[in-house]
Design a protein around this nucleic acid. Structure first.
Lengths: 254, 254
DNA sequence: ACATGAATATTGGAT
DNA sequence: ATCCAATTTTCATGT
């Protein structure tokens, strides 16, 4: 899994290392180093000298991590071109992509460690509890939302977007259902409201609007009521069994 | 910067390594290994045996990276508790957080490399071209949007959200301005429409709505026109000079 | 603690 | 290629 490793490399050695393993090896390459990072594209940023962990993956994606946060300080998804060189006595990595046109440039001021990893393609990843799953489940069992509900369509396109579930209730009224896999916010209420108005414009039928989610914020519930719309609690995942490990934690987060 | 390193560790050695450097060292720790990853919380997921690069930062955040994509396969932001142990002959890391209650569990099937890094706190990061910056610049120079525009308020709260810029035009009409730092979509048009309707409800004044962004999608522009709203092209960042450091003005209305 | 909205959002899917 | 909507969005901010 570890293809190569380099400690305290010279700028030239680091540049060679990056070139070799990014160009031919197609490895995931990391460098721990004091860096200077420039970004220019959709926005622009400068990170002055600081310690960072730089990761370049096989798809050309680049991320610059600091000591905190899951989100990198600088990054670039799937770049089209990578350039490596020595400029002013420093190893430099430049990652560019087109559409949008942007660029990240990393200067390695004091590289401490570089390594090339070969990670085999992994499969067998399964995610449960997505909104798509929720939609399939409710389309098959609409009684979870309400008895007598008959689903007419899923992802029904309107002029203002796609309706998650379109149905008819036991009394023949049209029902627009908007699903959220997490706590519903005012944004979701606005979305539902748009769809309901759009459907109402089509005819004189009575149209109900139901927001189905595991929870809803208080302001969102207020607005929902003010607009004459409804909320249905629908859990996206089964409840978790609380298991008692009885093990002291390493540390408590800051 | 490199505090410690371990090649092909035994499960016990890896567990000790993690314990030592996460608990006391408060280092950033990485492990390259064949892993099995379980996640349970807002959603749930299973990643069967595969090669991953695991990063645990000093704030307790955990990320599991595969060979592609800037986004981790599994992650956990700023956990409250970390647990390390040996279970069934495998080193195991568990990261939990409350609110929301969730958990990631990583079993290291075949650890190839572990290392502890000390990254000094870095400062000197500057980002340019945020929407907040755009808002400040346009509030000071509203003529970029339109001659004779007088800004009355920024982030003006309404019952449907905050209006980015609220103004009066040369002919005394009220103007609602919605800003986007990227290409504006239908969502932005709906947002603007909501604000305009909200302001119109307050009185009998004529209210204009302007969407100010560097670009707009074709469907969004159609809808905007259908709703009687307007688009103004406003670039969030100055054009890039091929080589010169010359500092053009921050914003250019086109 | 909760709600809101921006983000260099990223990513996948549909058109 | 473009557009749209979900995301375990994350993250900062205001209340």
């Amino acid at each position: 899994m570890v293809r190569a490793q380099l400690n305290d490399p010279s700028p030239e050695d680091l540049a060679d290392f990056l070139d070799e393993h990014l160009r031919e090896g197609r490895c995931l390459v990391q460098v721990a180093s004091e860096c200077e990072v420039l970004y220019s594209g959709r926005a622009a940023s400068v990170a002055e000298a600081g310690d960072y962990l730089v990761i370049v993956k096989r798809d050309g994606s680049v991320q610059v991590h600091s000591h905190r946060s899951v989100k990198p300080v600088n990054w670039q998804p799937q770049t089209d071109d990578l350039f490596v060189g020595v400029e002013d006595g420093l190893a430099v990595l430049r990652a560019e992509r087109h559409s949008p046109n942007e660029m990240v440039r990393i200067a390695f001021l004091a590289p401490a460690l570089a390594q090339a990893l070969w990670l085999r393609e992994a499969d067998g990843f399964v995610l449960m509890g997505s909104e798509a799953e929720m939609q399939r489940a409710l389309a098959r069992h609409p009684e979870i939302i309400e008895d007598g509900l008959e689903v007419l369509d899923a992802e029904l396109p309107t002029d203002v977007g796609g309706i998650d579930l379109f149905a008819r209730d036991a009394r023949g009224r049209l029902v627009v259902v908007e699903l959220k896999r997490g706590k519903a916010t005012q944004e979701a209420v606005h979305q539902l409201s748009r769809y309901v108005h759009s459907v109402r414009r089509l005819g004189d039928d009575v149209v109900r609007g139901i927001l189905a989610a595991p929870a809803i914020t208080a302001p969102a519930l207020n607005r929902l009521g003010a607009l004459g719309l409804e909320f249905r609690e629908v859990t996206a995942l089964p409840e978790l069994e609380p298991d008692g490990p009885a093990q002291p934690p390493l540390f408590a987060g800051v």
